[in-house]
Design a binder for these strands. Structure first.
Lengths: 220, 220
DNA sequence: GCCTGTGAAGCTATTCACAGCT
DNA sequence: AGCTGTGAATAGCTTCACAGGC
């Protein structure tokens, strides 16, 4: 029930922040060897206490005198976030958004890589887009199983999102990144993260209107 | 201090869900006239109590016998979410992601519309992409002020994100939708919503690994 | 002195549970 | 009987504050 690196069941917010810390740490590892929680907090835009709590999750302890050794901390975060071997990803929907996503992730992250794309439109299939081979959706199950894919990205229109999710799950997906503006019905064992552009823009628009009091925040 | 429609200072989560409810309600307004909270909850993938709480924010009351009248509820949500007149949006960064965003929002939402795009690269300027005119970044301030733009979408590389944010704010933006993987430093009066693709994928990957117990959730 | 790690306090968001209505 | 609206309870997340160490 407990495996080697899961101490205390980490929340998705913590995982997200660790991913952000990692990127920031990589940027500043040239200039510095060590940093304190308040420094990383400033870079990430969170509180020092938050940083310390999050770092607890990766099982690394800094020293009160020098803070956190960047190289070692990065190793621990990598070890926590990255899969042991390789975790291939499938993308479904090669429209504008799908292609942008392919381009965005292309060439980074050897372990977490989009290895196959799928589209309903046969014209889009059997092509290579930003280095990724595209297949007709009919081959989804086959190719996912061949590659051992467990992560799917949904970039299809809302109307096709639910069936796509079902197909992904049936073919072995246990995690889905969903760009379609539809709540997906999937088994509770599957983790879904929604990115809903319309909702996000509506929210920004709403709060952009109510010009709030510049009360209690730090702005530096 | 209190304006006509702000009763109780609504959270961004509630605003986001209202946006989602709206989309779902529009889809089913053909078939049904009224619905109960548990029905909308099922469609949206949340609890009935959550739905009722959220609807409180828009100042509409359903009837215990018939539930919520869809048409009227939609009017209230529109009235709550939509700007009184018009709230033009600027996009900065016309790369792959920027173009996908333009295409995604093109032609919907007359009141909340991307009216200008900007790019550093002069080759991309002075063109029209999916119906939106592109300008060189140098004209950002001018055009934002001419159009009365208060919302910016950042789709530039991380290295240019902070300066872009600063330019947007200087030109009158009070809300920013940030796709760059960088924490933005802006005055506390400006609302920022981050969409961080790398972080989201990392999070999905993490939880896709830990195949969780199918314990307490409903899956239908 | 100023840091880390962490129990405890504080906040925010969600859910419970029930009065009131039809 | 079964719904809505909502005070009260709960759960989840963040921050405080301080013991312990350099």
């Amino acid at each position: 029930m407990n495996n080697s690196q899961k101490h205390t069941a980490v929340s998705s917010k913590t995982v997200g922040r660790l991913s952000r810390y990692r990127r920031l740490l990589r940027q500043c590892r040239e200039q510095e060897d060590c940093l304190f929680s308040h420094r990383l907090a400033e870079l990430a835009g969170v509180t020092p206490a938050q940083v310390r709590r999050d770092i607890m999750a990766v099982g690394y302890s800094g020293s009160p005198s020098k803070g956190y050794e960047i190289k070692t901390l990065l190793q621990h975060i990598d070890n926590f976030l990255d899969p042991p071997i390789r975790q291939p990803v499938a993308l479904v929907g090669v429209g504008n958004l799908g292609r942008a996503i392919l381009a965005f992730f292309a060439g980074r992250r050897p372990k977490l890589k989009i290895v196959a794309a799928f589209d309903k439109d046969p014209h889009k299939a059997d092509r290579v887009i930003v280095g990724c081979r595209c297949y007709p959706v009919e081959q989804l199950a086959d190719i996912m199983q061949n590659h051992g894919i467990t992560i799917g990205i949904i970039a299809v229109p809302a109307s096709a999102a639910q069936e796509t999710a079902a197909a992904l799950v049936a073919s072995g997906a246990t995690g889905i990144l969903n760009f379609a503006p539809t709540p997906l019905r999937v088994p509770a064992t599957v983790y879904v993260e929604d990115i809903d552009l319309t909702t996000s823009l509506d929210t920004v628009a709403y709060f952009a209107r109510s010009t709030r009091e510049p009360s209690l925040e730090r702005s530096t």
